[in-house]
Design a protein around this nucleic acid. Sequence first.
DNA 1: TAAAAAAATGAACGTTGTTCAAAAAAAATA
DNA 2: TATTTTTTTTGAACAACGTTCATTTTTTTA
Lengths: 205, 205
Amino acid sequence: MSVADRKAREKEALKNLILKGAKKLFIEKGIEQTTIRNIADEIDYSIGTVYVYFKDKNAILHDLHSIGFQELGGYFQELFSVEDPMERLRKMGFMYIKFALENSEMYDLMFNLKAPMEFLENSDNENWDEGVTTFSLVKKTVEECINKGHFKGHNVEPLSFMVWSLVHGMCCLEIRQRTKGVKFTNPDTILFDGYNEYLKIIEKL
Amino acid sequence: MSVADRKAREKEALKNLILKGAKKLFIEKGIEQTTIRNIADEIDYSIGTVYVYFKDKNAILHDLHSIGFQELGGYFQELFSVEDPMERLRKMGFMYIKFALENSEMYDLMFNLKAPMEFLENSDNENWDEGVTTFSLVKKTVEECINKGHFKGHNVEPLSFMVWSLVHGMCCLEIRQRTKGVKFTNPDTILFDGYNEYLKIIEKL
DNA sequence: TAAAAAAATGAACGTTGTTCAAAAAAAATA
DNA sequence: TATTTTTTTTGAACAACGTTCATTTTTTTA
């Protein structure tokens, strides 16, 4: 182990410390309400140090958005043991909503905030790898459903997009306070009630 | 016509001038990129004047969000002449998407940004009247569909929410650059392709 | 132990939303 | 019309933000 190796490890460790501190504050008080000064304070480093390890705030947000996708991957873990693609598709949507509700700030960052996409636009690798990978999971499952005789007359990609939009739309309206606004009869269960309507529909397809 | 009347008219006029200037800049360069100073400059008034007519930036955003709903109402106008509720439901979703794509910054303000909801929380009338009214339009149409024998075994409110979420989700993913990220086969038509999959589905219900 | 390299710092800059005492303009009063 | 009162407008000033970078501190090398 050379000194250079150790230095590299220490750099990595501090970078993770910054991300960990940032995530804690984001969850505690919201992303918009968290400043670079807050993050520096949280981990007992100066503002300048944060900027040594991250180009700007967008870079922090992008890295945290990637961590969010890892966490969503954790939620999706149990799906791989589900053989029946229709059952898997149903559960995938359910887990997606569950993740969004239990990690709303992270979800917002992953699927709503402009920061991660702006970071990508100004980076070498313009591809949204996390999004592509996650969406291909939906596409693959929908494709298997079609191969099993479901969704006759439908196209894989647009249908997958429709499914994604459906769950994303519900989560988005909830997180951005629009469901609260329209005062549903059962506000606490409206997301799962709405999702159930979708389940009833695809049952017949 | 008393002096007080004229003063009231002038106040109203200047308020509208501020909103008009704000909207112009929002559309031109985005809401986040527009500052109060920009707005004041645009209409040749000082920063202070803007704060005489609006409590804060959220108040401007909320008023503009209301104007957005009026404009969405314009898009929905032609729906009232559609007798068949199923046909009306189909067209409503289409017009919704059309509005979102043609007025993306206003759509974002109406259905995504936190500002209008934060303004409501700090105001006397906490109700999101615009959202309630618009959503009841969907509910009413879905109810008519059910009365005509469609959507057997479904519940009006959750089903309406599902439909809203579906179109909102697509618009949201598009506006917030997530569709761009996943690189669809036909990026330019994916929203309407996705919506078509939904149309195919409800056709059978 | 001294010199060189790396890491951490925080004052300072330009912007932001917002405030408010002062100035300017308009209306009311004499 | 001249003067006082009221209303409207102003922009300097404030605190807080993201960001930069010359300087200081710490670590490594010689």
